[in-house]
């Protein structure tokens, strides 16, 4: 008898512990999922009772019109191209640069220096995009900026693919580098000693031992990044570009489009919801696919 009640008491107590997080997830994550219905509606405000629920219940459905509007606008192709293009480029670049630095850091024979390098490299990760925007502005500002003679940066889109790429590498390489470095430090040192006795040069050791040993980590980070290829970093594209209109051709991504459309008219709100829904849906399948692939390669490392 006491066993039974004690077990129930335990389950009850643990369930109570889950409640704050669970309620948050229900209200802030699951409740908005019902709002997806707006992407199939002509959202109209019901002036008699303008609450969100009554607006949604009283708005007429318009089939797939919102989706059609999104794809008919000239922004659609641009934002998909930008989101996929930048992400694809940055996934590869970040990986190559971060792995290179991780390997180099691991070969430095002065531990103190290696630690200083790693610490300073990681620092940009902790700076918000708002502050990064000021960093970039110090270089590109009209008349005052260090590089202001070269171009009217915030009106001329030409340089921005490079600027955005540099800003991303600046902020993220240190982070990835630390993950790879952790994988490298986990490699059995005996492998290197054995290789060197067999006459392998350091360069050969890197390619024959280091890279193959951290391959699971490389693949996992790579695939997880590919799973999020439809999600752009809103902070980068919104704050660093100062949301400058003349640059939109190379700086509009799905996330900034969804944000701007949300602030617009009721029609645009529908388009914002539709675009956001599509992004989430496609993203969901990307992550599921990525995870299936990861679990095939290394079951331990899959997300679920």
């Amino acid at each position: 008898m006491s066993m039974f009640s004690r077990k129930n008491k335990k389950i009850f107590a643990l369930t109570m512990m889950m409640m704050p997080g669970f309620i948050w997830l229900l209200l802030i994550r699951y409740l908005p999922m019902f709002g997806i219905v707006m992407s199939f509606q002509d959202y109209t405000i019901n002036y008699r009772n303008p609450s969100l629920l009554s607006n949604i219940l009283n708005s007429p459905f318009n089939g797939l019109n919102n989706f059609r509007f999104v794809f008919q606008s000239d922004r659609a192709l641009v934002m998909i191209r930008n989101t996929l293009g930048y992400n694809a480029l940055w996934i590869v670049l970040t990986m190559v640069v971060a792995v290179a630095f991780a390997v180099m850091l691991s070969e430095i024979t002065r531990p103190l220096l290696a630690r200083i390098y790693q610490t300073l490299m990681f620092f940009p990760y902790f700076i918000s995009w708002v502050v990064v925007a000021y960093f970039v502005y110090a270089f590109l500002a009209p008349t005052y900026g260090l590089l202001s003679d070269m171009s009217n940066w915030y009106f001329n889109p030409d340089g921005w693919p490079v600027i955005l790429t540099l800003a991303t590498l600046w902020k993220t390489v240190g982070y990835s580098c630390i993950l790879y470095l952790a994988a490298i430090t986990g490699i059995d040192r005996g492998l290197y000693e054995a290789a060197s006795i067999d006459g392998a040069t350091k360069w050969q050791q890197v390619w024959a031992i280091t890279i193959p040993s951290i391959r699971p980590m490389i693949i996992i980070l790579f695939i997880m990044a590919v799973g999020r290829i439809f999600n752009a970093d809103f902070g980068l594209f919104y704050t660093v570009t100062r949301d400058s209109g003349p640059l939109y051709d190379v700086t509009t991504v799905i996330d900034t489009y969804v944000y701007h459309a949300m602030l617009g008219s009721a029609t645009e709100l529908g388009m914002s919801t539709a675009a956001g829904f599509l992004q989430n849906l496609v993203g969901f399948f990307c992550i599921m696919t990525a995870n299936t692939i990861v679990s095939k390669i290394d079951n331990e490392s899959s997300l679920f």
């Binding site: 409740l31 969100l52 629920l53 969901f284």
Partner: peptide, 17 residues
């Protein structure tokens, strides 16, 4: 919730509500 969500506009509207 790490894989799927309601999107920006519905989330903002629900939170405001």
């Amino acid at each position: 919730t790490m894989m799927f969500g309601g999107g920006l506009a519905p989330t903002v509207m629900v939170c405001r509500a």
